[in-house]
Design a protein around this nucleic acid. Structure first.
Lengths: 150, 150
DNA sequence: CAAATAACCAACTAAAAAAGTTGGTTTTTT
DNA sequence: AAAAAACCAACTTTTTTAGTTGGTTATTTG
């Protein structure tokens, strides 16, 4: 599991979709404006999210993207995996071609860490984020309210 | 907490130090050869590790670097913090200048994740890595043995 | 004391990854 | 027919990471 700003963009965009996509599909142009992410960059991200079967697209006017599943069934880990096609964290991924053992010693460390991050993010759904459940300090319901009214 | 290859390099180098630095200081030239990391890049990393009070340096022939504390008292999180001067994970770090609330919603997510990663890595000392304790699959004692004999 | 060793330092360069741009096409609705 | 929006590929810019160059300073050893 790789953690970059790209993954954060993707989660933010999917969260936007979860919040605004209840009634009709949401266009990337809208997300672009609301989240201040370049449209073409969003296109690239959503191409991957679509391949990952996390969103469905609707073409033509009034079209856009919809979550492919219920909010409660889409997890942050999936989003990041779809978008950050997880490159190996280790140099010597099982190939055993790490001539010096130290690399292997840390290998296990990174592997383990990677698993833990994945587990953590696998437990948090878009619904959790919308409800602001499942994590630290609260943004409060009114924050979400503002978003919906926006 | 930021997780890049730079941090991995630093942990690997510190682990090399923990293993080979029992008797005398270890020169960066040695670490460079064993771990296949460019000497000057190591110099840059060790400048930061020294500022972070994780290593002591000894100049002149026979000199090099030594752990500033016992292996059991140096933790992976410290190494990464020293080297990857943790840039904020969030765009709107407390400043409250995130005009749209979604950013703030994910903010808490990343903050929480960051904390958890930090906690995890704060619990793993260099001694743990040398003994290959505290994480997943084992490399075995013989691996470490090879290293010491190298 | 001279030579060698190794830390220390700054500025530069190269390579890779991330982010954004451009200029389209295709599909669908109104 | 026109407009909206997905879809697509190739390119450019920016940022980060990694490595290079060319030194100086401190310390040890022959």
């Amino acid at each position: 599991m790789k953690l970059t700003t790209r993954g954060r963009y993707a989660v933010t965009a999917m969260l936007d979709l979860a919040i605004h996509g209840e009634q009709r599909p949401v266009s990337l142009a809208d997300i672009s404006v609301r989240q201040e992410i370049s449209l073409s960059y969003l296109e690239q991200l959503f191409a991957k999210l679509r391949r990952g079967a996390l969103v469905d697209s609707v073409r033509g006017p009034g079209g856009g993207y919809r979550l492919a599943h219920d909010r409660r069934a889409i997890f942050v880990a999936q989003i990041i995996d779809a978008v950050d096609e997880s490159v190996d964290v280790t140099n010597c991924q099982g190939k055993g071609n790490c001539h010096h053992g130290e690399v292997c010693l840390t290998h296990h460390l990174w592997q383990d860490l990677s698993d833990r991050i994945h587990d953590f993010l696998s437990g948090i759904s878009l619904a959790d984020l919308v409800d602001n459940r499942g994590h630290g300090t609260s943004g409060g319901v009114d924050t979400v309210q503002k978003l919906i009214l926006q």
